[in-house]
Design a binder for these strands. Structure first.
Length: 467
DNA sequence: CTATGGCACGGATT
DNA sequence: AATCCGTGCCATAG
């Protein structure tokens, strides 16, 4: 009895550190789960009601004025950045997967591909099909392709193969279009079908996609044209259509020269952990940085619980005491997590302000290690805090927080720009030369690598756009 | 012969 | 200690 308290404090100290570490590395969804389960299992933990600001409807910190409204729009004096944390958001229960389709542009909580598709599909499907659809959707690889076959699904669920194929065809039509296909060709065909309902699809597109994709990627237009008995002009139209509208890997962001900004799927599936935006959406206003917490209101140790501890029978106190310990620990760790994130972001936002405001070109090279020494934190702490988190920028794009440490992003976008502005296809070494004139010295090989990362064809295959 | 992509090495980063 | 990234070398295609 005499030893226990000290022992407890030491264990709780190390547990404290350990838990803070793990909390830092969690995604929003995981954190929410963690808190929910803790809330459910620990009677000492209490979730207080949130206070909302009467002006802007935002949740308030436990005490004090609203951090946004109290920040007058005019006083852009010295501190252009306001930090808010926490912010409630998307408090979805856990198991309401069917039913209402969310109409907000951002998917609530981090949703994986299967549930994302299922949400769209659920409303349209008869109940007996939903189960099968869910089953199918759990058999997808990271590209959104089926890892099983219609036949197997049919056998497993005792349904007719034809029913299953019909169902899969249906599923393919949901966003991302082509999901559940067996291979890229199928996926692209599905996309053609869907697109043909809303726009003109060049003739022969289906034939080319299903049979001549290989030649297409080699740019042997005339060959294909000959085989299909049409003009190579027509095939070029098809080529343009394909590269602009089709994505062979429905669940992946880009491939080859297919890359449209509004179709960056991988980013759609996250709910950002951090928001950066201008106050009232007005670019003249200061930037606001919000760190989102997955809960409404404030967590605390239930004071009633605490005070009644003394009046409890001694045989139960031990258990209760540990509950309180645990609750305290969790709260402490959460605070620390928020604090660490806040410190990190304060630095990060200042350092990468140009990027946040002006885009990819202005990304400064930065390493986690540098930030770590600046903040006097351990590198691994930064690493954990950065990984598996996403940020929504003022331009509404959601990017992984790790992008702030992408050394080559500015170079890549510069190359992209050079190629866009070229009037004559430049070779990689020519590009290297141009970059050198701008003071950027990188190897020719590296130019090639960046170029392909951006999904840009090599110079000799690009057609010159002489305007 | 030139331009590009693949492989792999070494140093930096995590 | 594991991983990522830039780069050099080499084979291949045009």
């Amino acid at each position: 009895m005499l030893i226990l308290p000290s022992q407890q404090t030491t264990t709780s100290m190390s547990a404290h550190l350990a838990q803070t570490m793990t909390l830092l590395g969690l995604t929003l969804g995981e954190l929410q789960q963690k808190i929910d389960s803790e809330l459910a299992s620990n009677p000492a933990l209490e979730l207080m009601e949130e206070r909302t600001c009467p002006m802007c409807q935002r949740p308030l910190p436990p005490r004090g004025p609203c951090p946004i409204c109290s920040q007058p729009a005019s006083s852009e004096s010295q501190d252009p950045i306001v930090f808010i944390s926490p912010r409630e958001d998307f408090y979805t229960g856990s198991a309401s997967s069917t039913g209402e389709v969310p109409e907000e542009p951002f998917v609530s909580e981090s949703v994986d591909l299967p549930s994302y598709v299922l949400r769209q599909a659920a409303a349209d499907l008869p109940t007996e099909d939903r189960v099968v659809a869910a089953y199918i959707l759990t058999h997808l690889d990271e590209d959104g392709f089926l890892t099983t076959t219609a036949l197997e699904v049919a056998r497993y669920h005792h349904r007719l193969p034809s029913e299953i194929t019909a169902l899969i065809e249906k599923l393919k039509r949901y966003d991302p279009v082509g999901v559940c296909s067996a291979n890229p060709i199928e996926a692209m065909l599905a996309q053609v079908e869907v697109l043909s309902e809303i726009m003109n699809v060049p003739a022969y597109t289906r034939e080319v996609v299903s049979k001549y994709l290989h030649q297409m990627s080699q740019h042997h237009y005339s060959e294909i044209a000959h085989a299909l008995m049409t003009s190579s002009q027509q095939i070029k139209k098809v080529a343009a259509f394909i590269s602009e509208n089709l994505n062979p890997f429905p669940a992946r962001a880009h491939w080859g020269d297919v890359r449209s900004p509004n179709n960056n799927d991988s980013e759609v599936f996250h709910q950002p952990d951090i928001l950066i935006y201008h106050h009232n959406e007005n670019p003249a206003n200061p930037l606001v940085v919000e760190i989102i917490l997955p809960i409404r209101g404030t967590l605390r140790v239930n004071p009633l619980f605490k005070s009644s501890l003394k009046q409890m029978e001694p045989n139960k106190t031990e258990e209760w005491r540990s509950d309180i310990e645990k609750a305290n620990l969790l709260i402490k760790c959460l605070q620390q997590r928020s604090n660490a994130l806040k410190l990190l972001l304060e630095k990060l936002v200042v350092l990468q302000k140009d990027y946040i405001l002006q885009g990819d070109l202005e990304m400064k090279p930065l390493t986690r290690a540098k930030i770590a020494t600046m903040l006097d934190m351990h590198e691994s702490t930064i690493s954990r805090a950065v990984s598996s988190k996403t940020v929504q920028l003022p331009n509404k794009k959601i990017v992984p927080l790790a992008i702030f440490f992408d050394r080559s992003l500015s170079h890549r976008t510069l190359i992209k720009q050079i190629i866009e502005d070229e009037d004559h296809p430049l070779s990689d070494s020519e590009i290297q030369q141009l970059l050198k004139e701008q003071g950027i010295e990188i190897a020719r090989r590296t130019v090639a690598k960046y170029r392909s990362m951006e999904g840009i064809l090599p110079g000799n295959l690009r057609q010159s756009k002489n305007r």
